[in-house]
Every structure is written in structure tokens, then in C-alpha cells.
Design a protein around this nucleic acid. Structure first.
Lengths: 217, 217
DNA sequence: GATTGTAGTGAACGGATGAGCAGTAAAAAA
DNA sequence: TTTTTTACTGCTCATCCGTTCACTACAATC
């Protein structure tokens, strides 16, 4: 192998190492799983697992991968491909929900219309979904018609939380105020009336708590 | 949770199935690897691999996962709540500006405090920056204290546009209303007074037009 | 009442897999 | 020149892991 003289930075990869690294990336992207040592060997016609091992060890030393010992497929990609600023995913693709199906505790796929990339710093833990707001009933809380609210999936809420509530087939965004055997859903606009539902008889549930908002202007 | 009678869709998950599915998601996100059957069993104190198998088979039938036979950790999440592959970069890193330096037509790097990932669909063409709003002067336009506005860099605006205006060292978000030799910057809150600047003598410029908004709640 | 789906126990089979040792060869670096 | 790094072959070992069979138990549906 003809090696051209290179400036010796510790982070430099050899041709072989880069090939293997690219293959790992490819596998992770296409299959969702890193390859096993033997799968790498097969791909590059390396007969011995120890041959691959040497390359992986080198990649580990140079900081491109992290290995989880004794774990099958335990290869973690550390540095991302071309310019990702070195950071870990700065965003998460949040599903955009169209209809919120009644009764389902989770999001039915049929109702996911798309996704919106949202900066991680805007997200708490847990599953987050987004919903397009229709109507001006929460105008005084700064939630306008056409806005997208971000909501964390949860089935309970505290008094005063702004929630995504589902009544029958309808999803609404309102302020949650629990009362005995009833729930009061308060709008933030004097032109609208509060909704009061009897929790004993009504098909009512909380889909999530509103934790953020996106607006196009 | 009291379960109301449900329409029996094939996609319904049992509590156990959802638990396992959530665990798999958790593992994929935190470790980058799906768990093995035995790892799942360990987590849920299921002694037999066959117990886990039954659950995985059910999840497979219902379309939540896809299994790669004979492959370790060969569990692929089909319906994802949070995920990021599929499309190529659906987002753009928008610079978050701290101070807007006077007189500079472009953003000085020194003043960039960070960046926020924003979905491409929220962005028009051109250079976009974001700015944290201080104060409630635009409350009635749904722009609250602490919100982040997205603005496209431009030095002119039309009557009625909400703009990021710079007067001296101060940056403000207001509605732009041009008048002869003067500019009126109108707040959207009766508690605040409009700002009128004389364009002939004042150190005034438009930094950009507000085209979006992000809020953490 | 019979069937189906769910949720397991327990044991066993065989291939998959990571780790490790001994040794080779060539290129690059010190 | 000597040493280190890279890139392997070939082999062994213990364990990991998915698969499968037999069987139990419960609940809901048909």
C-alpha cells in the first residue's frame, strides 16, 4: 500500500480505517444496527476476527468509535460524518399529529401527518408530539390560530396546566382545572366559554401537557 | 386507569407490550443499540426467553417492530415517536444573537450566543437569526417575554411588518410604520408607548423581519 | 364450550459473537 | 536503524443469543 506522507495528527485515519468506519455508518443508517465483527470481516474479506479487531481498536483510540465490551454489535459512533459541529443531534424530529384518536393511549401512526425538527433545548424528557392549533380560544396565552404547540404525552395534569385534551373525537388546547367529578377546560379568551366535562360519563382524557410553541409568521 | 370501551383496532397494545416497546426505544436512544431478548427478559424479570419472544412476536404482528431473524439485537423500530433518520437534515441551525451590534450590516460572531435547530419548513430563504424577546411590549401579537423570535436579515421593511429594529445599542421587536422622515415603532400592548425615531438624525436601522416564533413553556 | 391471544416457565440446540494468543509482513515513525 | 503501528492469518474458548418444543394459566372473544 502506497502511503503518501501526511501531517501527523493523532486523529488521522488510514484508508482502511476510514473504509471500515464508513461501512459501520452505512450499516447504522440502513439497518439501524451496527455490524458485528464478523460482518465487517466478511465485507472486507478479512478472514480473522482479530484483523477487524485491530482496526476497531485503532478507531477507538482515535476517538471515532466507542466500544461496549462483551456486547454484540457494541460499536457506538462518536464523531459524526461531515460537519455536524461535533455535537450530538441538536434536534429531535417531533411527530406532527393530525387527529388524536379517541381512546388510544399512544399515538396511532395513521394520525401522524409529518414531523417537525425541534431544538433539543426546547424539549423535556418523555415523548413529545406537536399539534396545529385551530381557533383563537387561547389567544390571551399567546397561542394563536395556526400555531403549533409542543406537548409532552401524559394522561394527568395539574391545575392551571395548559393541556391537550381529547373529548370524544375532538382535541382541544385549554387550561386544565380539575373539580370534583368534573374537569373545567378554561379558554384564554373572554369571547369563549369554558368547557365543563363530567369525568364519570364523558369520553374525556388528557393527551399531553403543552410545553412549547412554534409559529410561522 | 379506567379503560373506556374501545373500538378493537388491531394496532392496540397491551400494557406489557407498551412497556417492552418503550424499553426498546429507550435502549436505542440511550445506548444506540436495541436490546437482546435476554436483556429485555432481565429488565422485566421474565425468566424465559420465550416469554419475551411472545411479546416481540405480538409487537411484530401489530407492526410496531420488525425483526431480523437470526440476527442479534435484530429489532427494528418501525413506528417511531422520536427519531431522526429518513430525510436528510430537515433542520437548519439558526444563530442565536445576544446583542445586535450597532451599525453592522451582518451578524458579528462575537455576538452569537448559540444556535437553535429550526425546522426547514419554518424558514424562508435568506439568512435567519433568532433573538430572545425581553418584555411584554408585543404581547397582543402573541410575542411574550422570553420567547425567541426568528427573523430574516433585511434592512428594509413594509408598513405593518413586525421587525427587529436597532436604535443605538438597543434591539427591539416592534411593528414597523414608516412616516415621512420618521419611523414609528408600534408596540402591541396598550401599556406601552410607540417609539418614534427621526431617520435623519437617529442611529436607527432595521435588522430583520420577524418570520417566526419559538416558545418554551 | 371451544378457540384465540397473551404471558409466561423451563430446557435444550446450534450458530453467532467477542476476546484472546501466537505469529507474519510491510509501512511509517522515531 | 530500531521501534511502533497497521493489517492481517489461523485457531480456540466461553459465552451470547435467537429459535424451538412442551406445557401452564388466564382473559376475552366466538
Amino acid at each position: 500500500m502506497v502511503m503518501v506522507r501526511k501531517a501527523h495528527h493523532i486523529k488521522e485515519l488510514t484508508k482502511r480505517q476510514k473504509e471500515v468506519l464508513d461501512f459501520i455508518r452505512e450499516m447504522v443508517e440502513s439497518r439501524g444496527l451496527p455490524p458485528t465483527i464478523r460482518e465487517i470481516g466478511e465485507k472486507f474479506k478479512i478472514a480473522s476476527t482479530n484483523g477487524v479487531r485491530a482496526i476497531l481498536t485503532a478507531l477507538g483510540k482515535k476517538g471515532y468509535i466507542r466500544r461496549q465490551p462483551l456486547v454484540s454489535r457494541g460499536i457506538e459512533l462518536v464523531k459524526k460524518t461531515t460537519f455536524d459541529f461535533g455535537q450530538r443531534r441538536a434536534y429531535v424530529a417531533v411527530p406532527l399529529v393530525g387527529k388524536i384518536a379517541a381512546g388510544l393511549p399512544t399515538l396511532a401512526v395513521e394520525n401522524i401527518e409529518g414531523s417537525i425538527a425541534v431544538d433539543k433545548s426546547f424539549l423535556p424528557g418523555g415523548d413529545v408530539f406537536s399539534l396545529r392549533v385551530v381557533g383563537d380560544s387561547m389567544k390571551d396565552s399567546g397561542i394563536f390560530d395556526g400555531d403549533y404547540v409542543l406537548a409532552r404525552m401524559q394522561s394527568t395534569a395539574e391545575k392551571g396546566d395548559i393541556v391537550v385534551a381529547v373529548i370524544g373525537e375532538e382535541a382541544t388546547v385549554k387550561t386544565y382545572i380539575p373539580q370534583k367529578n368534573r374537569v373545567r377546560l378554561e379558554p384564554a379568551n373572554p369571547a369563549f366559554q369554558p368547557i365543563v366535562v363530567d369525568t364519570r360519563f364523558s369520553d374525556f382524557r388528557i393527551a399531553g401537557k403543552v410545553i412549547g410553541l412554534l409559529r410561522r409568521m
